[in-house]
Design a protein around this nucleic acid. Structure first.
Lengths: 229, 229
DNA sequence: TCAAAAGTGTTGAGCGTACACCCATGC
DNA sequence: GCATGGGTGTACGCTCAACACTTTTGA
């Protein structure tokens, strides 16, 4: 079966830049392409948008199909459509970025992906298509958005220590923060809920665990509160 | 001539939310549709992306074709692709927003537009498709981006008074600002260049004209300066 | 001379930043 | 008891917000 139109149409795809955080590094999830073009090369997970599905849906579907990830934070990044970005034909892609708690998810390659692996951001292979550019855009967006939106919590376990939160900001923003000032600032905001639990399995005094209080954040936002690190 | 593909493809369009500022109001440029669907309804200027042209190019081309505007500030906003947003078929659109100096440009309808007119933002007609949503998104983006990027200057004449600049911020952000504090803050930034000209044709003391110094802004940005109102 | 807007400084409060030590825990 | 990181307070400088009067100009 084929489909015929009066005017030529660019193909439409979605691509996802998936960020994850381990204790020391910001990582990104790449797949090894099983098909041409760029077969055997590393690329962002993604694929064609189907007629009748929204592009957000396409992004989630492709992410799940190729890497097994679902129910993650996913937000639109930008759309790129340089006619030469795909050697086959004019392909316009809507890029997304996702944030996941590395510990919560196990990835596994599927469908068009031979492998799905986490790469540290400072040790990346050359990527297929213009995926380097998209990844850079996503990285910049993450860095700037992290400062004025509470999206960092998406990269941490549900319950986390203040030290973990601080480390997250230090890693992504790439600068050191003062421990006392950081704690003062974030606690004063009133968007963290103290749990009655503490860390376990550490060889020193165990730290208190906190949880991001999305309710409180929403309430405060409506009253003009502005999150900022 | 027709075009045939192995898989169905959504159609791809671009739409532009064009903002302009007169002395008292933020306005948006709409066109009256000459063709179905929504014939006779007001809509955002836009149209189909051609194979072989970048989407930025498509946005500029459509803007020029339908409204006569060219060489304006234009930036990608978002991409929407709900399959039901167009009654004909699945159409994905890449939305842009543009900022223009009202005084510098004369608009005129052309091609698929019966008319092109400026509407005040608080007196809008019901728009075709989901263009209301896109316009709202653009308005929010403008409001938030205005605060931390020097894009407001795109809405003013090349040379402007501090009062005009302040009025721009007051109109778009929808709150009053203190004159002395505003002047102090913006002048201290060092991104305005004082010209040796003053206003003319005013029935009171004429104000000094300033110019946005993009060079200085770029230099300072590289050194970590962060524009913010 | 009047009307209208331009232009200009000071003060107090709150916030960001810099900085060092004691405490709890596991080994 | 020692190593490791958890947890805490203060002082200073800067920025932000509030606030009113004089000056210039054209009509």
């Amino acid at each position: 079966m084929t489909f015929t139109y009066d005017y030529a149409r660019p193909a439409l795809t979605v691509d996802c830049v998936v960020f994850g955080l381990d204790d020391h590094d910001l990582k990104v999830l790449l797949i090894e392409r099983k098909l041409k073009p760029f077969r055997g090369k590393w690329a962002l997970p993604g694929g064609f948008v189907r007629v009748g599905e929204s592009i957000d849906h396409a992004a989630r579907r492709e992410l799940k199909e190729e890497t097994g990830l679902e129910k993650v934070f996913l937000e639109q990044l930008c759309t790129v459509g340089n006619p030469l970005r795909d050697p086959r034909e004019h392909v316009v892609t809507v890029a997304y970025y996702a944030l996941v708690r590395l510990s919560d998810h196990r990835v596994h390659a599927a469908t068009d992906a031979a492998q799905a692996l986490w790469f540290s951001l400072d040790d990346l292979p050359k990527l297929a298509f213009d995926h380097d550019d998209i990844l850079n855009t996503a990285h910049q967006r993450l860095r700037s958005k992290l400062r004025y939106q509470p999206i960092g919590f998406e990269l941490l376990p549900k319950k986390f220590t203040l030290r973990q939160l601080q480390a997250l900001y230090e890693i992504v923003l790439n600068r050191e923060l003062d421990k006392r000032n950081f704690r003062k600032k974030i606690l004063k905001m009133g968007v963290l809920e103290e749990t009655d639990e503490i860390e376990s399995d550490v060889a020193h005094r165990a730290a208190r665990l906190f949880r991001f209080d999305r309710q409180a954040y929403r309430r405060m936002t409506r009253r003009g509160f502005h999150f900022e690190i």
